[in-house]
C-alpha cells in the first residue's frame, strides 16, 4: 500500500464526521498551529442539566491522521457526558482507527488534547471545577505554553515572547514582547484570550504589546 494509513483512517479523512464550525458554542479549544503543520479547533455544546455533549464539531488544518482522529473522537464523544468524554485517549482513537503510523501519533494526540481542553474550558467557565484554585501567574503561563507563534512553531513562552503576567481581581494582564504591528499580533492576542478567558475566576483578559 502506498500510503501507510488504514482504510478506516482514509475513510474518516476523506469524509470526516462532525467537521465544520459551530455557532454559539458552550466551549471552544484550539491546539497546535499552522506553523507546526497541525492545528485543530474543537467546539462543544453541552446540555446544562445532564452534562451530555449534545453537539460537537471540529475544524482541522492538518494531515490525514489529525483529521481522522478528530473525526473519530468527536463521534465517540457525541452523546456522552463530559465525564465519560474525558476518558477518551489517543490510544482509544488509535485502536478505533485500526492503528496510526507511529510517526503520525503526535497529530492524533493533538486532536485528543483539543477535546480535553474544550471540556476543561467548559468546566472552568461553568463553575464545575472541583476544588477550584485561584488563578495564579504559573497557571496562566502553563496555559500560554499552548499558544504557538505561527512563524516558528514554538510556543510563545518558549519563544520568549512573554514579558510578564499579572493576575489581579479577576483580571489577567499578559505583557508580550510583541510589537502591536507584528504580523501575527492579532492572531496571538486572540489565542491568548481563548486560552485564559475560560478560567473559572477570570473575568477579563488583557493583552499588552510592546509598542
Amino acid at each position: 500500500m502506498p500510503i501507510p494509513y488504514s482504510n478506516k483512517v482514509i475513510d474518516h479523512f476523506l469524509k470526516p464526521h462532525n467537521a465544520g464550525s459551530m455557532k454559539d458554542p458552550d466551549a471552544v479549544a484550539t491546539e497546535g498551529s499552522p506553523a507546526c503543520g497541525d492545528m485543530v479547533k474543537l467546539y462543544l455544546k453541552v446540555n446544562p442539566e445532564t452534562k451530555v455533549i449534545d453537539d460537537i464539531k471540529f475544524e482541522s488544518y492538518g494531515c490525514a491522521s489529525n483529521i481522522a482522529t478528530a473525526s473519530i473522537i468527536t463521534d465517540i464523544a457525541k452523546g456522552k457526558t463530559i465525564e465519560e468524554a474525558k476518558k477518551v485517549t489517543w490510544k482509544s482513537a488509535d485502536k478505533e482507527l485500526g492503528g496510526l503510523p507511529p510517526v503520525k501519533v503526535h497529530c492524533a494526540v493533538l486532536a485528543v488534547d483539543s477535546l480535553h481542553a474544550a471540556i476543561d474550558n467548559y468546566e472552568q467557565s461553568h463553575g464545575l471545577v472541583k476544588d477550584p484554585k485561584p488563578t495564579t501567574k504559573e497557571i496562566v503561563i502553563s496555559r500560554l505554553k499552548h499558544v504557538i507563534n505561527p512563524l516558528t512553531g514554538f510556543n510563545i513562552v518558549k519563544a520568549n515572547m512573554i514579558d510578564d503576567v499579572k493576575v489581579e481581581n479577576g483580571t489577567v494582564t499578559v505583557y508580550t514582547k510583541l510589537a502591536s504591528d507584528h504580523q501575527f499580533a492579532a492572531n496571538i492576542k486572540e489565542e491568548i484570550i481563548e486560552r485564559i478567558e475560560p478560567l473559572w475566576d477570570v473575568k477579563k483578559v488583557e493583552v499588552k504589546f510592546d509598542g
Partner: peptide, 9 residues
C-alpha cells in the same frame, strides 16, 4: 489555510 499532506492525499 490548508495543509499540504492532506492535499496530496
Amino acid at each position: 489555510r490548508v495543509e499540504g499532506e492532506s492535499i496530496v492525499l
